[in-house]
Amino acid sequence: MDSGLAIYVLRRILQIPPLLLGISLLAFLIFYLSPVDPVVAYLGLTTVQKMPPEDVVKVEEQLGLDKPAHERYLLWLENIVQGDWGFSYIKKRPVLDVILERFPATLLLTLTGYSLSMVLGVIMGLASAKREGSPLDRSLLRLNYILYSTPTFLVALLAMLVFAVWLGWLPSSRMISVDEPVTFWACSLDRIRHIILPATVLAISHLAVFYTYIRSSLLEAMRDDYIITARTKGLDERAILYRHALRNSLLPFVTQIGLAIPFLIGGSVVVESIFAWPGIGKLTYDAALRADYMLLMGMTLFTSILVIIGNLMADVAYAILDPRVKYN
């Protein structure tokens, strides 16, 4: 690694702590400035109205609401540094424990969906780029446009209706069956059957972005000088497309992985809520429904960290892969 790159990476890493501090302040301020009374959000309006006032004060003290804003913020930061990230009301456990416990399920679902999306995107992109403007290319473009305008939850509902209810091929919710099979093979098959629908829906939700990217970068590569050289050497079109153009368009594509993180998290909220997949997307949804502030603040910070790491990786990967990039 040359020193220019090292300095660039170091400078990018040094920018992260102030950014994280900013995000934590944002998350805290949103809840602090909220017009909704946290006690009401926590216990429900009818319960609070029936409670004697001194009990309400007691709950406020328990939630730390009696302290001034800066003390509450510092207390939260202290919790973060100590590694428990505050206390989740709905789970009755430390926030970070809950998030880390649910994270592997999301990781499994997202990675499966993302890989599937990438494979589909490359296949469709190649089919399109083989002949620009062909009927196949034009119908793929149209399909892509419709996909781009379709909300993920609609795809999920339709997939569930067709494959789980009408055809009955696949289970419609959860990660494993209620009566989980005992043998290893039956158990693995059960898990695979459960992941197919949510992963495919997640893949479809991200397909439009991938396909557009692959198609345009393939078409751009096909106009480059080295392709013309390959043609004049008499290479056949297949070899040119697969060996020269595809390889060069996939390289910058690798950097897209880091940038896709926010969309994948967004998609996982929808997909996990619909298919009752026990990941962090479902967790956020449950927290939002029951106004679990600590958990929501923790999720904001946690997902921001993932996004920041993704952006950093994308930039560094790009800088390493493309020697023309200037570090500034």
Partner: peptide, 17 residues
């Protein structure tokens, strides 16, 4: 700062309050 959390998460946080 506002760009960092995923849009969906920030939205869900905001509609809660």
């Amino acid at each position: 700062v506002i760009y960092s959390p995923p849009e969906t998460i920030l939205l869900m946080v905001l509609v809660t309050i």
